[in-house]
Design a protein around this nucleic acid. Structure first.
Lengths: 212, 212
DNA sequence: TGTACATCAGTGAACGCGCGTTCACTGATGTAC
DNA sequence: TGTACATCAGTGAACGCGCGTTCACTGATGTAC
C-alpha cells in the first residue's frame, strides 16, 4: 500500500517534468524525454498520470498551491489592504528568485487561465477592500487586474532568467511600488510599503512548504 | 511572373492561419487544417512557406508591422512623451477591439520575445524621454516595461474576447490612466491625457494599412 | 490576333518519422500465517 | 522469525495514429513570334 517506490517514481517524474517544462515549450516535451530524465521506464508514466495534460496540470497546480499557501500564511495577521498587496507581490517575486524553474513554468502557463485562480481571487479581494476603505483610488478593478496579472507574469519570467540578484531585488521593489502607485498610493508611501513588505520576506520563514 | 493565383493562394493561407491561430494553441494547428480552411491543396502550403514555423512567424510579423506603422503614424506630430505613450496604448487597444483575431495572435505570441520588438523600442524611448524631461517619475525603466508589456498583453487578450464595446472602451481608458499613474503622472492629469488620446483615435484615420 | 511553348503554381497521394499509449511480463514489496 | 503468496509498480517492445514534408504530375498563366 505504502510502496516507497511509488512515491520515488512519481517525484522523479514531477522533477523531470518541471525541469523540462521550464526549459522548453510545454508541447515540445515528449514523454520519452520525461521518463528518460526521470530515469524510469516509459510505461511507468502511465502508472502515475492519466495523460500528458494531466501531468502538466499536476505540476502547475502543485506550484500554484505552494505559492498560494505561502501568501496566505504571510498575510495571516495583516489587515491593511495595501500592505497585503505589497507582501503578496514581494512574496511571489521572492519565490520566483529562489525557484526559477517553478517561476518559468508559472510564467508560461496558459494566460487565459490567469483569471480563474483562487490566488488571484485573494488579491482581487484585497484590492476591493482597499477601494472600499478609500485607500486605493481607481476607476474600476478590471484594469488593475490586467496590470497586476500581466505585470507580475512578466516579472516572474524576468526574475527567473536574471542572474544579478541585486538587480532582481531592485526590479521587485520598483514593480511593487509602481503597482501601488497605480492604485493611487503616493509614490513616497508606496516605496515605504514596498520596502516594509520586502523586509518581512527576509525574516525567518515560519512555514516551509514541502515539495514532496 | 505576376500570377494572380499566387497572391490569392498565399492570402487564403494567411487568412486561414490567422483564424486558426486565434482560436487554438499554435502547436495545435495542423497544416491539413490550414490548407483545408484556405481551400487549397496541402502541397500548396510549401510553395509559399518554408515551414510551419516560418508561416506562424510571417503572420505575427505582418500584424506587428501593421500596428507599429499605425502607432508611428499616429505619433508623427506628437512631442509630449506622456501623450505619445497614451496614444500608443489607446491605438493598440483600439486595434485589438477592431481586430480580435489579430489581437489574440499577438497576445499569445511568445512572451519571451516581447522585449525584442522595435514596437517596444519606440515606447521605451518615449518613456526614457519622459524620464529625462522629468515628466515621468520612476526609479528605473525596467519595472515600467514589465508592467507595460505584461499589462497591455493581457489587455489585448481581454479586449479580443469582450463583446460589450462600452465596457471595452472603459477598460482601455482605465488601463491607459493607470499606466500613466505608474509613471508618476497625477491621476487627474492622467485621465485627461487618456481621454485626449482616445479622442484622437476617433478622428478619421489618415493611414489605412493594407492587410494584403 | 492567334498559336505554340515555357514556366511555375496547384494537387493530393505516398512516405516516414515521432510520439502517445498499450500491454504482457518481471520482479520488488507487503502481508498472512 | 520464516516462508509462501498476493499485489502492484516497473519495464520496454510494439502498435498505430497523426502529421510534416516530398514529389511526380496536371493544368493555368504568361510570353514569344
Amino acid at each position: 500500500m505504502s510502496d516507497p517506490r511509488r512515491q520515488r517514481t512519481r517525484q522523479a517524474l514531477l522533477d523531470a517534468g518541471l525541469a523540462l517544462f521550464a526549459e522548453l515549450p510545454v508541447d515540445a516535451v515528449a514523454i520519452d524525454e520525461i521518463t528518460a530524465k526521470a530515469g524510469v521506464g516509459k510505461g511507468s508514466f502511465y502508472n502515475h498520470f492519466e495523460s500528458r495534460e494531466a501531468f502538466a496540470t499536476a505540476i502547475v497546480e502543485d506550484i500554484r498551491r505552494d505559492i498560494e499557501a505561502q501568501i496566505i500564511a504571510a498575510n495571516r495577521d495583516v489587515a491593511d489592504p495595501a500592505m497585503r498587496v505589497a507582501r503578496a507581490i514581494m512574496l511571489y517575486a521572492n519565490y520566483a528568485m529562489r525557484m526559477p524553474q517553478q517561476a518559468l513554468v508559472m510564467g508560461k502557463a496558459d494566460l487565459t487561465q490567469r483569471f480563474d485562480h483562487e490566488l488571484n481571487d485573494n488579491m482581487v479581494a484585497d484590492i476591493e477592500q482597499g477601494m472600499a476603505e478609500k485607500i486605493f483610488k481607481v476607476g474600476s478593478i478590471e484594469a488593475g487586474k490586467l496590470f497586476l496579472f500581466g505585470g507580475v507574469g512578466m516579472l516572474v519570467l524576468r526574475l527567473a532568467r536574471e542572474k544579478d540578484s541585486d538587480l532582481s531585488r531592485e526590479i521587485c521593489l520598483e514593480m511593487c511600488t509602481l503597482f501601488l502607485c497605480c492604485l493611487g498610493i503616493a509614490r513616497d508611501a508606496a516605496i515605504k510599503l514596498a520596502k516594509a513588505a520586502r523586509k518581512s520576506q527576509l525574516s525567518p520563514r515560519k512555514f516551509v512548504t514541502a515539495t514532496h
